[in-house]
Amino acid sequence: MTATNEAGGYKLYWMIWGVLLALTVVMLFLDNAPMPRVAFVLIMVGAMLTKAFLIAGYFMHLRYEALFIRLSVFIGLLVNGAVLYFLIIPDAYRILGMS
């Protein structure tokens, strides 16, 4: 049985669609809400990653694929992306502090 066969029918996809839309509405609502910057960034990044996991997991059927594919995508994209970001960002703050 392929990953797609296991992934369920239309109903699941439209449920995921509803969750994605709800998350987007929450993000837009919070865009103008008064709150500390750190909390705002954490909530936004959390919602963004949740949406990404839902799209990759259900629409792209990644959660039904073999562990090797899941690890390749997770390490290849998310971990590499995070390492890339956190390696260069401190340098940006250093340059900002020099000016």
Partner: peptide
């Protein structure tokens, strides 16, 4: 990811 990391770098550095 490279584009967005670069964007974040430029944005923080800009002030």
């Amino acid at each position: 990811a490279g584009f967005l990391a670069s964007y974040g770098y430029a944005r923080i550095m800009s002030g």
